[in-house]
Simulated scan of single mutants.
Amino acid sequence: MADGQSSARITDPKVMRALAHPARIAIVEHLGSTGAVVTATECAGLVGLSPSATSYHLRELAKFGLVEQAPSRGDARERVWRSTTSGFSVDGDLDEPETRDSQRALVDVYLSRDFARMREWVARLHEEPRAWQDASTLMGPMLLLNAEELIEVNRRVKEVLDPYRRRERMGDAPADARPVVVHYAAFPVE
């Protein structure tokens, strides 16, 4: 798929289950956020697996349309892969038990990875330059909203973040720019 890809909306519980693996989420995130074209060997370092295991995960992701084989970079024997989307959202029929279970499994893997990233950041925070220490934040304000207001807050947060998406900025980001994960969740509590 060419640049200008949109985010995929995943509704099929089989696709959710297929994606509910740490290596697969890492692959989809990397390819989608960078637009990179990679071999399984190049991708293996990213996910910490062997090239053959990574190749298996790429083929599984391709079965569900999340990645695809890209045109060769010159050596016809080399199999290269690219993302079919710039990101994804999960939106299945939660009245269906299979969808609920699949979504829960996917979100669990996703959250485990993101919380591990947060813990890693906090552990190395003291090693980072002061500018990055000051720029990073971890906050959890308690808001009082109705559903309509929460929709508006979510829309505005997305609007603020969109111009900074990695894939769109790769060619013109400041020289000192680094990949930054923004973990955002907004939901009612009891």
Rank of each mutant, 00 (worst) to 15 (best):
V109W: 01
D93P: 06
G74V: 00
E60C: 02
S7G: 09
E190L: 14
D75A: 06
L58F: 00
L125A: 14
F187D: 10
L106A: 02
H57A: 04
A40K: 00
S7R: 14
R124L: 05
G92V: 00
S6Q: 13
D162S: 09
R165Q: 08
I10C: 04
R79G: 00
E190Q: 15
A36N: 12
T39F: 03
L94A: 08
T11F: 03
D75M: 04
D93N: 15
G65I: 01
A36M: 00
D3W: 07
R17V: 04
L19M: 15
T41H: 10
A147M: 07
V38Q: 13
P22K: 01
A26E: 10
D91I: 00
R166H: 12
A175L: 12
T39P: 06
S89I: 05
Y184S: 04
R100H: 08
L49M: 11
L94Y: 09
P174W: 03
L19V: 04
R9W: 08
L111S: 11
V180P: 01
S7V: 15
R119M: 09
T39Y: 02
D114L: 07
V107H: 05
S6V: 13
R124N: 11
V67W: 00
E190P: 15
T85N: 10
L145F: 09
A18R: 06
A131Q: 09
S55P: 04
I25F: 05
P179N: 03
A177H: 03
R124S: 14
L31G: 06
I151S: 14
S33E: 11
V38D: 03
R130S: 12
G45T: 02
E159K: 14
A8N: 03
D95F: 01
G171T: 09
S55C: 07
V181N: 10
L144T: 13
V67H: 01
L144N: 10
H21K: 11
R59F: 05
A20K: 05
G45A: 07
G35E: 11
Y56M: 12
S89G: 14
L66K: 02
Y110G: 07
L161W: 06
M142D: 10
A23T: 07
E127G: 04
Q133V: 02
E149H: 12
Q69D: 08
S83D: 08
T11C: 08
A62H: 06
G32P: 05
R113T: 05
K14F: 08
V189D: 10
A175T: 03
M142L: 15
W121Q: 11
R130L: 15
T85S: 14
D108W: 09
V181S: 13
